[in-house]
């Protein structure tokens, strides 16, 4: 094997790690807001991702039938729609279910798990049990090949760009906007935040809905990588909790760092050993680190 080939493989392997990083971060981000900031154990997170994925599928089918000329352009619009629809459902869920359970965080686990089972059945009844794939625009498929033997997946680049955009947006909103200020105040001390005139109920609802909306975007982005079925959400939920818990609940930077660490460990070890062993190694590392630092990589500084 020549030096060129080794160089190309190393580059592609590096990108594989980055690509996994963006996937993990995107799926953990919505949860980091809901679980990390609000303390709600949202077991239905995966299903909100599935809502986003099905939105893309619906847009693709409708565009294909009614406006085939727009096939190259529907995707960005559909992603926005995925956010809006998941946001709407999140808003509704918070109003109907979650707001009654803030004082019983463990019960949110049961309630949202029930919700996830219900949503799975709704998906199954509406879209059928078979997995579906939207028809993607041509510019999202194939690989970008800057030189011979070097192929960078375009869908990976797309997910990476989208992840950077969403993460940047969330960080900016949380630390620079009025909403972010209210969220952080509510997290730090709900009673005091109430006393200073912050409508914490409204803040909660908006926060939960934004978390769900981001899950929708994540689900939408993943249609470029995998397929969508009624139970797709359950594939993501474990990884999403893993990323958030390992990073330290309550810290967005922690989520970013943890997604990066897990992705690189997983991706590099996968190259040198079998897939299952790589997963074992990654999980062992995570467990060991969590035993030493139960609060996760980055813990928020709150007086307890």
């Amino acid at each position: 094997m020549s030096f060129d080939e080794i160089y190309n493989i190393a580059l592609m392997q590096g990108f594989a790690g980055l690509s996994l990083f963006s996937v993990l971060l995107l799926m953990g981000l919505g949860l980091a807001i809901i679980f990390g900031q609000m303390g709600v154990i949202n077991m239905a997170h995966g299903e909100f991702m599935t809502i986003g994925a099905y939105t893309i599928f619906m847009f693709s089918s409708l565009t294909e039938t009614y406006a085939p000329g727009l096939m190259q352009a529907y995707f960005p619009v559909a992603i926005l729609a995925a956010f809006v629809i998941a946001f709407g459902f999140g808003w509704l869920t918070e109003w109907a279910l979650i707001r009654h359970l803030y004082k019983r965080p463990l019960d949110t686990l049961l309630a949202t798990w029930g919700l996830s089972l219900g949503m799975q059945q709704v998906f199954r009844s509406t879209f059928g049990p078979k997995e579906v794939s939207p028809t993607l625009p041509d510019w999202l498929m194939g690989s970008w090949s800057p030189s011979e033997g070097l192929d960078i997946p375009i869908n990976g680049l797309f997910v990476l760009a989208l992840t950077l955009l969403v993460t940047g947006g969330v960080l900016l909103a949380l630390y620079k906007s009025r909403w972010g200020l209210r969220v952080r105040a509510t997290v730090a001390n709900r009673a005091m935040a109430n006393a200073t005139g912050i409508n914490t109920k409204r803040t909660d609802r908006l926060t939960y809905a934004i978390g769900c909306g981001i899950a929708g975007v994540a689900g939408a982005a993943f249609t470029t990588i995998g397929s969508t079925g009624p139970t797709s959400g359950s594939l993501y939920i474990v990884d999403a909790f893993l990323v958030v818990t390992f990073g330290g609940a309550g810290s967005l930077l922690g989520t970013v760092a943890s997604a990066f660490g897990i992705a690189q460990t997983q991706s590099i070890s996968e190259f040198f050993m079998t897939g299952s062993m790589a997963k074992v190694l990654t999980l062992l590392l995570i467990v060991t680190i969590l035993m030493i630092r139960p609060q996760g990589l980055f813990a928020s500084k709150i007086r307890r």
């Binding site: 592609m12 997983q266 190259f271 079998t274 299952s276």
Partner: peptide, 17 residues
Amino acid sequence: EEYYPLGHTNFNSLINK
């Protein structure tokens, strides 16, 4: 010869192999 858990969705490292 490689095996991946059911539901595994990230094959980039495998593809490089």
